[in-house]
Amino acid sequence: MRPTQTTAFDTTSRPRWLEDRIQRHLAEPKQNPIVQISRYTYKGQVVYYETLGCCDQFSNLYNTKGNLICHPEGGLTGRGDGQCPDFEKNRTGERLVWRDPR
């Protein structure tokens, strides 16, 4: 589920790597669907979930240090890489961190 258009961005303590990632997205052409990054708690830790544009691209799940944990969705099957199949079911505390404003 994606946050509504009226959801305010959570800018609380964005890690430097995440700010850099956002700037890279802004330097590239706008994607469709729009790229967005949300923060969750998953397996007891804060994680950042990044959706990417079309088609068959993996979504990315990062830890607070910017290390890739897994690809929860996307790819040819739409089910990601299979490394965190319980992410959607077990994530909590959704906070929209950033959505491409263009």
Rank of each mutant, 00 (worst) to 15 (best):
residue 17 W to N: 07
residue 17 W to I: 08
residue 17 W to R: 02
residue 18 L to H: 02
residue 19 E to D: 14
residue 19 E to M: 05
residue 20 D to L: 06
residue 21 R to L: 14
residue 23 Q to I: 00
residue 24 R to D: 11
residue 25 H to V: 15
residue 26 L to P: 02
residue 27 A to Q: 14
residue 28 E to T: 11
residue 29 P to Q: 09
residue 31 Q to P: 08
residue 32 N to K: 13
residue 32 N to E: 14
residue 32 N to I: 15
residue 33 P to D: 03
residue 35 V to N: 05
residue 37 I to V: 15
residue 38 S to M: 12
residue 42 Y to Q: 01
residue 43 K to H: 13
residue 45 Q to A: 14
residue 46 V to G: 10
residue 48 Y to L: 08
residue 48 Y to E: 02
residue 50 E to K: 13
residue 50 E to R: 11
residue 50 E to P: 02
residue 50 E to G: 04
residue 50 E to I: 13
residue 55 C to P: 00
residue 55 C to L: 05
residue 58 F to R: 01
residue 61 L to I: 11
residue 61 L to S: 09
residue 64 T to L: 09
residue 64 T to I: 09
residue 65 K to T: 08
residue 65 K to W: 08
residue 66 G to F: 08
residue 67 N to E: 12
residue 68 L to P: 05
residue 69 I to P: 04
residue 71 H to M: 13
residue 71 H to R: 13
residue 71 H to A: 08
residue 72 P to E: 10
residue 75 G to C: 05
residue 76 L to P: 02
residue 77 T to K: 13
residue 79 R to L: 15
residue 80 G to C: 06
residue 80 G to V: 12
residue 82 G to A: 03
residue 83 Q to C: 00
residue 84 C to N: 06
residue 87 F to H: 02
residue 88 E to I: 14
residue 89 K to N: 04
residue 89 K to L: 14
residue 89 K to H: 12
residue 91 R to H: 09
residue 92 T to M: 03
residue 92 T to V: 07
residue 93 G to L: 02
residue 94 E to P: 00
residue 95 R to F: 09
residue 95 R to K: 15
